[in-house]
């Protein structure tokens, strides 16, 4: 499955980069995240619960950040598995400055999903995935606003 999209953040690129690279922030922003801890500089481990239609899935997995060019771009590789199946994805994220106070995040990627999650939930994976991504960005944007407000 191909992933592609963008989200406009209300903040300068440096600030957006900082919160995207902050595991504590990420943990609160990825819907369903139960734990997310940094195991080394570019690697995180965690657990997440996802509900897709009739499938309630708990995953444990790993997130790796590579090809980092702060504050412009990076590649994220995620791998998760659980009783309901597995997911593996690679995504490339680019941050573009839109003037001084806005940042456009663009992402492209590929997601492989398997197991029960696919055979039972495939009709819903697309919409659930999109809604999770958007919810995540919205929460990030709110966190960003709070941080910016605290600074000013």
């Amino acid at each position: 499955m191909k992933l592609e999209g963008e989200y406009l953040f209300n903040g300068p690129r440096e600030e957006v980069w900082n919160i995207v690279r902050d595991p504590d922030v990420l943990a609160t922003c990825i819907p369903g995240t139960q734990t997310l801890k940094q195991v080394n500089e570019n690697e995180y481990e965690g657990a997440i619960g996802v509900r897709i239609g009739p499938v309630n899935a708990a995953f444990t997995g790993k997130l790796t950040v590579s090809d980092e060019i702060p504050p412009e771009s990076c590649t994220l590789t995620a791998e998760g598995k659980g009783a309901a199946g597995f997911a593996r994805g690679v995504g490339h994220v680019v941050l573009e400055e839109q003037g001084s106070d806005k940042t456009l995040l663009k992402y492209t990627g590929e997601l492989i999903i398997g197991g029960k999650l696919m055979s039972v939930g495939q009709r819903l994976i697309d919409s659930v995935g999109k809604s999770m991504i958007n919810k995540g960005f919205e929460t990030l944007d709110k966190t960003l606003a709070t941080r910016l407000a605290a600074k000013s």
């Binding site: 197991g115 029960k116 696919m118 055979s119 039972v120």
Partner: peptide
């Protein structure tokens, strides 16, 4: 099946 060999309609719903 998808291109990775995953069955996509493994229920009587689909």
């Amino acid at each position: 099946y998808d291109e990775n060999g995953q069955l996509m309609n493994g229920t009587f719903m689909d």
